[in-house]
């Protein structure tokens, strides 16, 4: 390992330790914002692992996240299963779902994939509501645990750590390199021996896995869950905006997008909730027209300017 790597590791460990003590110093409101932020850090970082190099824009986060939350809720409420068991099953179910979606859509151009994932959360919600109304009876589900907000925060932080370690490994692995080549030129990728379809499906699967895991862990926060609440198309868009705002060329890019955006989003939602949709739209336009490479790109450009 080079000195640079050691430096990054030390910085990462220090930041992680600082993040871990937040529940001891924050008040209730601050902690709840922190939980939301950590949740989006996990979602956006794992999103960027797949969508960053390949440029396939996934809007499936909401669907996978919902699968996580919903399975925990229905398992605990309808079948009396433990939270831990359901939190382990849910990501696996989402991973299988992701493989199926990936096999059907990732052979084709990016447009088909975006369109397919665009309505996915809504479709799964319709399907789940229908099954629940017709076969299971109840509509709302209870997730009752002993977890405090701080417990949820630490669990999510742990998941984020796993995602970062996975991303770090990926950046040095053949699979990560394969994805970068695919993002550059898929025809070349095939001809240098990359199984492009599987490489994409595997990465999409890990995004689905982590989104569902995060959805499962955060479920106890709400105690009462209904499909309309956990399958949120808006969540998918927020994840995309935060990741792109930060920049996907670096593993830590989404992180620098999530933190400011969560704060601003929180502020707008509590003070100007009528304008929240408009604000999302403007954020998209800002990314496309002003900072296409995100904050990371801005930092790099400034860095180069200072050097010259």
């Amino acid at each position: 390992m080079r000195t640079n790597d050691w430096q990054s590791i030390v910085i990462a460990v220090v930041l992680f330790a600082l993040a871990a003590i937040v529940p001891f110093i924050a008040n209730g409101y601050q902690l709840s914002v922190a939980v939301t932020a950590v949740m989006y850090v996990g979602l956006a970082t794992s999103w960027a692992l797949f969508s960053g190099p390949t440029h396939y824009i996934s809007l499936a986060s909401g669907a996978f996240f919902g699968v996580g939350g919903y399975l925990v809720a229905t398992g605990m409420s309808d079948y009396n299963l433990s939270f831990w068991l359901m939190a382990a099953i849910a990501p696996l179910v989402a991973a299988v779902l992701a493989i199926l979606i990936g096999l059907a859509t990732l052979r084709l151009s990016g447009v088909y994939f975006v369109i397919f994932t665009l309505g996915l959360a809504e479709m799964v919600r319709n399907l789940v509501s229908w099954i629940q109304n017709n076969f299971l009876g109840s509509r709302g589900l209870y997730v009752l645990t002993d977890f405090t907000e701080a417990h949820i925060y630490w669990m999510l932080l742990g998941v984020c750590a796993i995602i970062f370690i996975f991303g770090w490994w990926l950046g040095r692995s053949r699979l990560g390199f394969a994805l970068r080549i695919i993002g550059n030129d898929e025809a070349v990728a095939k001809h240098v021996g990359i199984n492009t379809a599987w490489s994409k499906v595997i990465l999409f699967m890990t995004t689905g896995f982590f989104a569902a895991l995060i959805g499962a862990i955060i479920a106890p926060r709400y105690s009462y869950i209904e499909p309309n609440q956990v399958f949120s198309p808006e969540l998918s868009f927020l994840v995309v905006i935060m990741a792109l705002l930060g920049g996907t060329q670096r593993l830590w890019g989404p992180l620098v997008g999530v933190i400011p955006f969560t704060l601003v989003w929180e502020f707008i939602n509590s003070n100007f909730s009528n304008f929240s949709t408009l604000f999302l739209g403007l954020a998209f336009l800002l990314i496309v027209y002003v900072i296409p490479r995100g904050f990371v790109g801005l930092l790099q450009t400034w860095g180069e300017k200072i050097r010259t």
């Binding site: 053949r174 390199f177 394969a178 970068r180 080549i181 993002g183 550059n184 070349v188 240098v192 021996g193 990359i194």
Partner: peptide, 15 residues
């Protein structure tokens, strides 16, 4: 978006 040397490594890493 790959460097010159990465372009070459790409040829050998998978095939």
């Amino acid at each position: 978006s790959l460097s010159v040397i990465e372009n070459v490594i790409a040829g050998g890493a998978f095939g």
